[in-house]
Design a protein around this nucleic acid. Sequence first.
DNA 1: CGGATCTGTAGACACTGTCTACCGGTGTGG
DNA 2: CCACACCGGTAGACAGTGTCTACAGATCCG
Lengths: 219, 219
Amino acid sequence: MAQEDSLRERLIGVGVDVVMTDGIAALGLREIARRAGVSHGAPRRYFATHHALLSAIAQRGFADLRARFEAATAAVTSPRDRLAALAHTYVRYALEHRGMFELMFRHDLLDSGPHTSAHGPRLRESTLPLFETIVALIAECRTEPAGRRRDDVRSSAEPPPAVTAAALWSNLHGIAQLWAWDSLRLALGTPSAGPAPGGDHLELLVTAALDAHLGPARA
Amino acid sequence: MAQEDSLRERLIGVGVDVVMTDGIAALGLREIARRAGVSHGAPRRYFATHHALLSAIAQRGFADLRARFEAATAAVTSPRDRLAALAHTYVRYALEHRGMFELMFRHDLLDSGPHTSAHGPRLRESTLPLFETIVALIAECRTEPAGRRRDDVRSSAEPPPAVTAAALWSNLHGIAQLWAWDSLRLALGTPSAGPAPGGDHLELLVTAALDAHLGPARA
DNA sequence: CGGATCTGTAGACACTGTCTACCGGTGTGG
DNA sequence: CCACACCGGTAGACAGTGTCTACAGATCCG
Protein backbone atom coordinates (compact mmCIF):
# COMPACT_ATOMS: atom_id res chain seq x y z
CA MET A 1 0.00 0.00 0.00
CA ALA A 2 3.00 2.27 -0.39
CA GLN A 3 4.24 1.94 -3.98
CA GLU A 4 1.75 2.61 -6.72
CA ASP A 5 2.77 4.24 -9.93
CA SER A 6 2.35 7.97 -10.28
CA LEU A 7 3.36 10.21 -7.44
CA ARG A 8 -0.16 11.49 -7.27
CA GLU A 9 -1.50 8.14 -6.18
CA ARG A 10 1.41 7.56 -3.86
CA LEU A 11 0.80 10.83 -2.05
CA ILE A 12 -2.83 9.95 -1.49
CA GLY A 13 -1.84 6.51 -0.26
CA VAL A 14 0.72 7.91 2.13
CA GLY A 15 -1.83 10.40 3.34
CA VAL A 16 -4.30 7.63 4.07
CA ASP A 17 -1.68 5.74 6.03
CA VAL A 18 -0.71 8.84 7.96
CA VAL A 19 -4.23 9.80 8.96
CA MET A 20 -5.00 6.22 9.92
CA THR A 21 -2.03 5.85 12.22
CA ASP A 22 -1.16 9.32 13.46
CA GLY A 23 -4.38 11.24 13.02
CA ILE A 24 -5.25 14.52 11.42
CA ALA A 25 -2.56 16.46 13.22
CA ALA A 26 0.12 14.67 11.20
CA LEU A 27 -1.47 15.50 7.86
CA GLY A 28 0.67 18.51 7.07
CA LEU A 29 1.56 19.01 3.45
CA ARG A 30 5.29 18.91 4.12
CA GLU A 31 4.90 15.91 6.37
CA ILE A 32 3.16 13.88 3.70
CA ALA A 33 5.81 14.84 1.18
CA ARG A 34 8.51 13.89 3.68
CA ARG A 35 7.04 10.46 4.30
CA ALA A 36 6.62 9.96 0.59
CA GLY A 37 10.30 10.72 0.12
CA VAL A 38 9.91 13.80 -2.04
CA SER A 39 10.55 17.46 -1.48
CA HIS A 40 7.93 19.71 0.01
CA GLY A 41 7.18 21.37 -3.28
CA ALA A 42 6.49 18.17 -5.18
CA PRO A 43 2.82 17.70 -4.27
CA ARG A 44 2.06 21.04 -5.83
CA ARG A 45 2.41 19.47 -9.28
CA TYR A 46 -0.66 17.35 -8.61
CA PHE A 47 -2.62 19.24 -6.00
CA ALA A 48 -3.05 22.97 -6.31
CA THR A 49 -3.39 23.34 -2.57
CA HIS A 50 -3.11 21.45 0.65
CA HIS A 51 -6.87 21.19 0.85
CA ALA A 52 -7.01 19.54 -2.54
CA LEU A 53 -4.73 16.75 -1.35
CA LEU A 54 -6.72 16.32 1.83
CA SER A 55 -9.89 16.15 -0.21
CA ALA A 56 -8.47 13.35 -2.30
CA ILE A 57 -7.55 11.49 0.88
CA ALA A 58 -11.02 11.98 2.29
CA GLN A 59 -12.55 10.69 -0.90
CA ARG A 60 -10.65 7.47 -0.39
CA GLY A 61 -12.36 7.28 2.96
CA PHE A 62 -15.80 7.69 1.46
CA ALA A 63 -15.04 5.02 -1.12
CA ASP A 64 -13.79 2.68 1.58
CA LEU A 65 -16.91 3.26 3.63
CA ARG A 66 -19.16 2.58 0.68
CA ALA A 67 -17.31 -0.65 0.00
CA ARG A 68 -17.83 -1.76 3.57
CA PHE A 69 -21.52 -1.06 3.25
CA GLU A 70 -21.81 -3.28 0.25
CA ALA A 71 -19.81 -6.01 1.92
CA ALA A 72 -21.89 -5.83 5.08
CA THR A 73 -25.27 -5.83 3.37
CA ALA A 74 -24.50 -8.28 0.61
CA ALA A 75 -25.72 -11.38 2.38
CA VAL A 76 -28.69 -9.72 4.03
CA THR A 77 -32.12 -9.62 2.43
CA SER A 78 -34.57 -8.01 4.84
CA PRO A 79 -34.49 -4.23 4.45
CA ARG A 80 -34.70 -3.79 8.19
CA ASP A 81 -31.64 -5.95 8.70
CA ARG A 82 -29.80 -4.20 5.91
CA LEU A 83 -30.39 -0.93 7.66
CA ALA A 84 -29.10 -2.42 10.89
CA ALA A 85 -25.98 -3.72 9.21
CA LEU A 86 -25.46 -0.36 7.58
CA ALA A 87 -25.85 1.47 10.86
CA HIS A 88 -23.41 -0.71 12.75
CA THR A 89 -20.93 -0.50 9.91
CA TYR A 90 -21.13 3.27 9.88
CA VAL A 91 -20.51 3.69 13.59
CA ARG A 92 -17.86 1.03 13.72
CA TYR A 93 -16.00 2.61 10.83
CA ALA A 94 -16.11 5.97 12.53
CA LEU A 95 -14.54 4.57 15.67
CA GLU A 96 -12.04 2.21 14.12
CA HIS A 97 -10.81 4.84 11.68
CA ARG A 98 -11.26 7.83 13.87
CA GLY A 99 -8.83 10.10 12.08
CA MET A 100 -10.19 9.37 8.64
CA PHE A 101 -13.77 9.83 9.75
CA GLU A 102 -12.87 13.11 11.36
CA LEU A 103 -11.19 14.30 8.19
CA MET A 104 -14.16 13.31 6.05
CA PHE A 105 -16.38 15.82 7.81
CA ARG A 106 -13.92 18.61 8.45
CA HIS A 107 -15.29 20.95 5.86
CA ASP A 108 -12.74 23.59 6.82
CA LEU A 109 -9.98 21.30 5.53
CA LEU A 110 -11.64 20.13 2.35
CA ASP A 111 -12.45 21.67 -0.98
CA SER A 112 -16.11 20.88 -0.65
CA GLY A 113 -17.46 23.87 -2.47
CA PRO A 114 -18.72 23.71 -6.04
CA HIS A 115 -15.70 25.75 -7.05
CA THR A 116 -13.36 22.81 -6.66
CA SER A 117 -11.05 21.99 -9.51
CA ALA A 118 -10.99 19.07 -11.83
CA HIS A 119 -11.91 15.41 -11.87
CA GLY A 120 -13.78 13.36 -9.39
CA PRO A 121 -17.22 13.98 -7.98
CA ARG A 122 -17.69 16.89 -5.65
CA LEU A 123 -16.76 15.87 -2.18
CA ARG A 124 -19.90 16.71 -0.30
CA GLU A 125 -21.94 14.76 -2.79
CA SER A 126 -20.05 11.68 -1.74
CA THR A 127 -22.56 11.24 1.03
CA LEU A 128 -25.54 11.43 -1.28
CA PRO A 129 -25.63 7.80 -2.46
CA LEU A 130 -25.46 6.71 1.14
CA PHE A 131 -28.40 8.88 1.97
CA GLU A 132 -30.45 7.68 -0.97
CA THR A 133 -29.74 4.11 -0.03
CA ILE A 134 -31.17 4.76 3.41
CA VAL A 135 -34.22 6.44 1.96
CA ALA A 136 -34.86 3.52 -0.35
CA LEU A 137 -34.44 0.97 2.42
CA ILE A 138 -36.81 2.82 4.68
CA ALA A 139 -39.41 3.06 1.97
CA GLU A 140 -38.97 -0.63 1.33
CA CYS A 141 -39.31 -1.25 5.03
CA ARG A 142 -42.66 0.46 5.09
CA THR A 143 -44.16 -1.41 2.19
CA GLU A 144 -43.39 -4.72 3.79
CA PRO A 145 -45.93 -7.56 3.50
CA ALA A 146 -47.66 -5.86 6.43
CA GLY A 147 -47.23 -9.03 8.39
CA ARG A 148 -46.77 -7.25 11.67
CA ARG A 149 -47.11 -3.57 11.00
CA ARG A 150 -48.79 -1.46 13.60
CA ASP A 151 -50.48 0.96 11.25
CA ASP A 152 -52.86 2.16 13.88
CA VAL A 153 -49.96 3.26 16.05
CA ARG A 154 -47.12 4.58 13.95
CA SER A 155 -48.34 5.47 10.51
CA SER A 156 -50.69 8.15 11.72
CA ALA A 157 -48.08 10.92 11.85
CA GLU A 158 -45.21 9.05 10.24
CA PRO A 159 -42.80 11.45 8.53
CA PRO A 160 -41.89 10.88 4.89
CA PRO A 161 -39.03 8.44 4.25
CA ALA A 162 -36.56 11.18 3.41
CA VAL A 163 -37.09 12.82 6.78
CA THR A 164 -36.81 9.56 8.67
CA ALA A 165 -33.67 8.75 6.73
CA ALA A 166 -32.13 12.10 7.56
CA ALA A 167 -33.04 11.71 11.21
CA LEU A 168 -31.59 8.21 11.39
CA TRP A 169 -28.39 9.15 9.64
CA SER A 170 -28.00 12.17 11.89
CA ASN A 171 -28.44 9.92 14.85
CA LEU A 172 -25.69 7.56 13.75
CA HIS A 173 -23.42 10.45 12.96
CA GLY A 174 -24.02 12.05 16.31
CA ILE A 175 -23.40 8.81 18.15
CA ALA A 176 -20.08 8.38 16.42
CA GLN A 177 -19.11 11.97 17.04
CA LEU A 178 -20.06 12.22 20.67
CA TRP A 179 -18.67 8.83 21.45
CA ALA A 180 -15.35 9.81 19.96
CA TRP A 181 -15.47 12.93 22.11
CA ASP A 182 -15.88 10.73 25.17
CA SER A 183 -18.97 12.56 26.32
CA LEU A 184 -21.25 9.59 25.88
CA ARG A 185 -18.75 7.20 27.30
CA LEU A 186 -18.45 9.13 30.51
CA ALA A 187 -22.14 9.95 30.60
CA LEU A 188 -23.09 6.30 30.40
CA GLY A 189 -20.35 5.37 32.81
CA THR A 190 -18.38 3.06 30.56
CA PRO A 191 -14.94 2.22 31.99
CA SER A 192 -13.40 4.61 29.41
CA ALA A 193 -11.44 4.16 26.27
CA GLY A 194 -9.46 1.54 24.54
CA PRO A 195 -8.52 1.55 20.92
CA ALA A 196 -11.07 -1.21 20.58
CA PRO A 197 -14.58 0.20 20.34
CA GLY A 198 -16.07 0.40 23.81
CA GLY A 199 -18.26 -2.60 23.26
CA ASP A 200 -21.77 -3.19 24.42
CA HIS A 201 -22.90 0.30 25.28
CA LEU A 202 -22.22 1.44 21.78
CA GLU A 203 -24.13 -1.38 20.13
CA LEU A 204 -26.93 -0.72 22.56
CA LEU A 205 -27.07 2.88 21.48
CA VAL A 206 -27.14 2.03 17.80
CA THR A 207 -29.94 -0.48 18.13
CA ALA A 208 -31.84 2.00 20.29
CA ALA A 209 -31.57 4.51 17.47
CA LEU A 210 -32.71 1.94 14.94
CA ASP A 211 -35.69 0.93 17.05
CA ALA A 212 -36.63 4.53 17.65
CA HIS A 213 -36.68 5.53 14.02
CA LEU A 214 -37.91 2.34 12.42
CA GLY A 215 -39.97 0.84 15.16
CA PRO A 216 -38.71 -2.08 17.21
CA ALA A 217 -37.37 -5.03 15.31
CA ARG A 218 -40.05 -7.62 14.93
CA ALA A 219 -39.89 -10.53 17.34
CA MET B 1 -18.74 43.39 25.42
CA ALA B 2 -15.21 44.59 24.76
CA GLN B 3 -13.91 46.30 27.90
CA GLU B 4 -13.94 44.31 31.11
CA ASP B 5 -11.22 44.68 33.66
CA SER B 6 -8.33 42.27 33.60
CA LEU B 7 -6.73 41.39 30.33
CA ARG B 8 -7.59 37.78 30.91
CA GLU B 9 -11.31 38.46 30.66
CA ARG B 10 -10.83 40.83 27.78
CA LEU B 11 -8.96 38.22 25.77
CA ILE B 12 -11.74 35.72 26.28
CA GLY B 13 -14.33 38.31 25.31
CA VAL B 14 -12.45 39.25 22.16
CA GLY B 15 -12.09 35.57 21.33
CA VAL B 16 -15.83 35.07 21.65
CA ASP B 17 -16.48 38.00 19.36
CA VAL B 18 -13.96 36.74 16.84
CA VAL B 19 -15.29 33.22 16.65
CA MET B 20 -18.86 34.50 16.43
CA THR B 21 -18.17 36.80 13.51
CA ASP B 22 -15.22 35.35 11.63
CA GLY B 23 -15.26 31.70 12.62
CA ILE B 24 -12.65 29.34 13.94
CA ALA B 25 -10.11 30.15 11.26
CA ALA B 26 -9.63 33.63 12.73
CA LEU B 27 -8.94 32.35 16.23
CA GLY B 28 -5.16 32.47 16.01
CA LEU B 29 -3.37 33.43 19.18
CA ARG B 30 -1.65 36.39 17.60
CA GLU B 31 -4.85 37.47 15.94
CA ILE B 32 -6.74 37.60 19.23
CA ALA B 33 -3.91 39.54 20.83
CA ARG B 34 -3.90 41.91 17.88
CA ARG B 35 -7.62 42.59 18.12
CA ALA B 36 -7.27 43.08 21.87
CA GLY B 37 -4.60 45.67 21.25
CA VAL B 38 -1.76 43.90 22.99
CA SER B 39 1.43 42.27 21.82
CA HIS B 40 1.47 38.64 20.75
CA GLY B 41 3.29 37.56 23.88
CA ALA B 42 0.79 39.07 26.29
CA PRO B 43 -1.74 36.25 26.43
CA ARG B 44 0.96 33.95 27.66
CA ARG B 45 0.76 35.61 31.11
CA TYR B 46 -2.75 34.21 31.52
CA PHE B 47 -2.92 31.20 29.27
CA ALA B 48 -0.06 28.77 29.14
CA THR B 49 -0.90 27.77 25.62
CA HIS B 50 -3.13 28.63 22.73
CA HIS B 51 -5.38 25.71 23.55
CA ALA B 52 -5.92 27.00 27.05
CA LEU B 53 -7.28 30.26 25.71
CA LEU B 54 -9.49 28.45 23.23
CA SER B 55 -10.77 26.27 26.04
CA ALA B 56 -11.76 29.31 28.04
CA ILE B 57 -13.60 30.67 25.03
CA ALA B 58 -15.39 27.39 24.50
CA GLN B 59 -16.44 27.31 28.12
CA ARG B 60 -18.16 30.64 27.58
CA GLY B 61 -20.09 28.91 24.84
CA PHE B 62 -21.19 26.09 27.12
CA ALA B 63 -22.29 28.58 29.74
CA ASP B 64 -24.21 30.55 27.16
CA LEU B 65 -25.92 27.42 25.92
CA ARG B 66 -26.90 26.40 29.41
CA ALA B 67 -28.37 29.83 30.03
CA ARG B 68 -30.46 29.55 26.91
CA PHE B 69 -31.76 26.20 28.05
CA GLU B 70 -32.94 27.64 31.30
CA ALA B 71 -34.51 30.59 29.55
CA ALA B 72 -36.29 28.38 27.06
CA THR B 73 -37.65 25.86 29.56
CA ALA B 74 -38.50 28.28 32.34
CA ALA B 75 -42.11 28.84 31.36
CA VAL B 76 -42.76 25.24 30.32
CA THR B 77 -44.10 22.64 32.71
CA SER B 78 -44.70 19.40 30.83
CA PRO B 79 -41.50 17.35 30.67
CA ARG B 80 -42.23 16.43 27.09
CA ASP B 81 -42.49 20.07 26.11
CA ARG B 82 -39.39 20.94 28.08
CA LEU B 83 -37.49 18.34 26.09
CA ALA B 84 -38.85 19.80 22.89
CA ALA B 85 -37.80 23.30 23.86
CA LEU B 86 -34.39 22.02 24.84
CA ALA B 87 -33.96 20.21 21.55
CA HIS B 88 -34.91 23.17 19.41
CA THR B 89 -32.72 25.44 21.46
CA TYR B 90 -29.75 23.12 21.02
CA VAL B 91 -30.04 22.88 17.27
CA ARG B 92 -30.83 26.53 16.81
CA TYR B 93 -27.83 27.52 18.89
CA ALA B 94 -25.59 25.28 16.84
CA LEU B 95 -26.71 26.91 13.62
CA GLU B 96 -26.90 30.49 14.77
CA HIS B 97 -23.49 30.34 16.43
CA ARG B 98 -21.86 27.97 14.05
CA GLY B 99 -18.28 28.87 14.82
CA MET B 100 -18.72 28.68 18.57
CA PHE B 101 -20.53 25.36 18.37
CA GLU B 102 -17.80 24.00 16.15
CA LEU B 103 -15.15 25.10 18.59
CA MET B 104 -16.95 23.56 21.54
CA PHE B 105 -16.56 20.10 20.09
CA ARG B 106 -13.14 20.41 18.47
CA HIS B 107 -11.29 18.32 20.99
CA ASP B 108 -8.07 18.75 19.06
CA LEU B 109 -8.15 22.46 19.87
CA LEU B 110 -9.15 22.22 23.51
CA ASP B 111 -7.47 21.15 26.70
CA SER B 112 -10.10 18.57 27.42
CA GLY B 113 -7.89 16.02 29.05
CA PRO B 114 -7.74 15.53 32.82
CA HIS B 115 -4.22 16.96 32.70
CA THR B 116 -5.51 20.47 32.17
CA SER B 117 -4.26 23.19 34.42
CA ALA B 118 -5.98 25.20 37.08
CA HIS B 119 -9.40 26.58 37.85
CA GLY B 120 -12.70 25.92 36.22
CA PRO B 121 -14.38 22.59 35.66
CA ARG B 122 -12.89 20.24 33.16
CA LEU B 123 -14.14 21.10 29.73
CA ARG B 124 -15.60 17.83 28.62
CA GLU B 125 -17.63 17.62 31.79
CA SER B 126 -19.40 20.78 30.72
CA THR B 127 -21.79 18.62 28.78
CA LEU B 128 -22.62 16.40 31.73
CA PRO B 129 -25.30 18.56 33.38
CA LEU B 130 -27.04 18.84 30.03
CA PHE B 131 -27.05 15.10 29.70
CA GLU B 132 -28.34 14.53 33.19
CA THR B 133 -31.12 17.02 32.60
CA ILE B 134 -32.22 15.04 29.59
CA VAL B 135 -32.10 11.80 31.53
CA ALA B 136 -34.23 13.27 34.31
CA LEU B 137 -36.77 14.69 31.90
CA ILE B 138 -37.09 11.40 30.08
CA ALA B 139 -37.59 9.51 33.31
CA GLU B 140 -40.18 12.07 34.31
CA CYS B 141 -41.82 11.66 30.94
CA ARG B 142 -42.22 7.95 31.51
CA THR B 143 -43.81 8.20 34.91
CA GLU B 144 -46.48 10.48 33.60
CA PRO B 145 -50.06 10.06 34.87
CA ALA B 146 -50.31 7.30 32.29
CA GLY B 147 -53.20 9.16 30.76
CA ARG B 148 -52.35 8.10 27.25
CA ARG B 149 -49.35 5.82 27.45
CA ARG B 150 -49.16 2.89 25.11
CA ASP B 151 -47.53 0.43 27.47
CA ASP B 152 -48.45 -2.51 25.33
CA VAL B 153 -46.60 -1.05 22.40
CA ARG B 154 -43.50 0.76 23.54
CA SER B 155 -42.56 -0.25 27.02
CA SER B 156 -41.91 -3.85 26.08
CA ALA B 157 -38.31 -3.34 25.00
CA GLU B 158 -37.92 0.26 26.06
CA PRO B 159 -34.27 1.08 26.76
CA PRO B 160 -33.32 2.66 30.10
CA PRO B 161 -33.61 6.45 30.30
CA ALA B 162 -29.88 6.99 30.10
CA VAL B 163 -29.69 5.18 26.79
CA THR B 164 -32.66 7.01 25.35
CA ALA B 165 -31.16 10.28 26.52
CA ALA B 166 -27.85 9.48 24.88
CA ALA B 167 -29.59 8.48 21.67
CA LEU B 168 -31.69 11.63 21.61
CA TRP B 169 -28.79 13.92 22.33
CA SER B 170 -26.71 12.20 19.66
CA ASN B 171 -29.53 12.74 17.25
CA LEU B 172 -29.70 16.46 17.92
CA HIS B 173 -25.95 16.77 17.70
CA GLY B 174 -25.84 14.89 14.43
CA ILE B 175 -28.60 17.00 12.95
CA ALA B 176 -26.73 20.16 13.81
CA GLN B 177 -23.47 18.79 12.48
CA LEU B 178 -24.72 17.39 9.21
CA TRP B 179 -26.92 20.37 8.58
CA ALA B 180 -23.97 22.68 9.01
CA TRP B 181 -22.04 20.47 6.58
CA ASP B 182 -24.86 21.00 4.05
CA SER B 183 -25.33 17.31 3.45
CA LEU B 184 -28.80 17.24 4.89
CA ARG B 185 -29.79 20.43 3.21
CA LEU B 186 -28.91 19.13 -0.22
CA ALA B 187 -30.20 15.68 0.55
CA LEU B 188 -33.61 17.03 1.49
CA GLY B 189 -33.53 19.44 -1.40
CA THR B 190 -33.77 22.66 0.56
CA PRO B 191 -33.02 25.75 -1.55
CA SER B 192 -29.61 25.98 0.16
CA ALA B 193 -28.08 28.22 2.75
CA GLY B 194 -28.69 31.55 4.26
CA PRO B 195 -27.30 32.77 7.51
CA ALA B 196 -30.80 32.33 8.85
CA PRO B 197 -31.48 28.72 9.76
CA GLY B 198 -32.98 26.96 6.78
CA GLY B 199 -36.42 26.98 8.25
CA ASP B 200 -39.05 24.31 8.15
CA HIS B 201 -37.05 21.29 7.14
CA LEU B 202 -34.85 21.67 10.17
CA GLU B 203 -37.74 21.97 12.63
CA LEU B 204 -39.30 18.99 10.91
CA LEU B 205 -36.20 16.97 11.51
CA VAL B 206 -35.98 17.90 15.15
CA THR B 207 -39.57 17.03 15.90
CA ALA B 208 -39.12 13.79 13.98
CA ALA B 209 -36.24 12.93 16.28
CA LEU B 210 -38.26 13.84 19.34
CA ASP B 211 -41.19 11.72 18.22
CA ALA B 212 -38.94 8.82 17.42
CA HIS B 213 -37.22 8.69 20.76
CA LEU B 214 -40.06 9.75 23.03
CA GLY B 215 -43.07 8.56 21.14
CA PRO B 216 -45.29 10.97 19.24
CA ALA B 217 -46.50 14.00 21.13
CA ARG B 218 -49.92 13.35 22.49
CA ALA B 219 -52.80 14.82 20.52
C1' DC C 1 20.72 15.90 -32.49
C1' DG C 2 18.20 19.85 -30.37
C1' DG C 3 14.59 21.96 -28.29
C1' DA C 4 10.23 21.69 -25.54
C1' DT C 5 7.72 19.77 -22.03
C1' DC C 6 7.11 17.32 -17.92
C1' DT C 7 8.59 16.34 -12.94
C1' DG C 8 10.75 17.27 -8.97
C1' DT C 9 14.19 20.39 -6.14
C1' DA C 10 15.37 24.33 -3.42
C1' DG C 11 14.94 28.70 -1.64
C1' DA C 12 12.17 32.72 -0.34
C1' DC C 13 8.08 34.83 1.89
C1' DA C 14 4.64 35.69 5.24
C1' DC C 15 2.68 33.68 8.95
C1' DT C 16 1.97 30.71 13.08
C1' DG C 17 2.74 29.16 18.31
C1' DT C 18 6.18 28.92 21.77
C1' DC C 19 10.11 30.49 24.40
C1' DT C 20 13.22 33.91 26.62
C1' DA C 21 15.33 38.18 27.65
C1' DC C 22 14.14 42.64 28.77
C1' DC C 23 11.84 46.85 30.97
C1' DG C 24 8.67 50.13 32.95
C1' DG C 25 5.64 50.51 36.58
C1' DT C 26 3.89 49.54 41.35
C1' DG C 27 4.24 48.32 45.94
C1' DT C 28 6.63 47.06 50.08
C1' DG C 29 10.23 46.39 53.65
C1' DG C 30 14.34 48.16 55.90
C1' DC D 1 13.32 57.66 51.45
C1' DC D 2 15.36 54.45 49.00
C1' DA D 3 16.24 49.76 47.18
C1' DC D 4 14.54 45.65 46.01
C1' DA D 5 11.46 42.41 44.15
C1' DC D 6 7.68 41.43 41.56
C1' DC D 7 4.01 41.82 38.20
C1' DG D 8 2.32 42.78 33.41
C1' DG D 9 3.42 43.56 28.98
C1' DT D 10 6.95 44.20 24.93
C1' DA D 11 9.98 42.52 21.41
C1' DG D 12 12.87 39.42 19.22
C1' DA D 13 14.34 34.71 18.13
C1' DC D 14 13.25 29.96 16.67
C1' DA D 15 11.26 26.12 14.35
C1' DG D 16 7.60 25.01 11.66
C1' DT D 17 3.75 25.70 8.23
C1' DG D 18 1.49 26.53 3.24
C1' DT D 19 2.22 28.90 -0.93
C1' DC D 20 4.89 30.77 -4.71
C1' DT D 21 8.73 31.07 -8.11
C1' DA D 22 13.02 30.17 -10.25
C1' DC D 23 15.75 26.48 -11.58
C1' DA D 24 17.71 21.70 -12.86
C1' DG D 25 17.24 16.85 -15.06
C1' DA D 26 15.12 13.79 -17.43
C1' DT D 27 12.20 12.35 -21.23
C1' DC D 28 10.14 12.53 -25.45
C1' DC D 29 9.28 14.13 -30.17
C1' DG D 30 10.26 16.37 -34.49
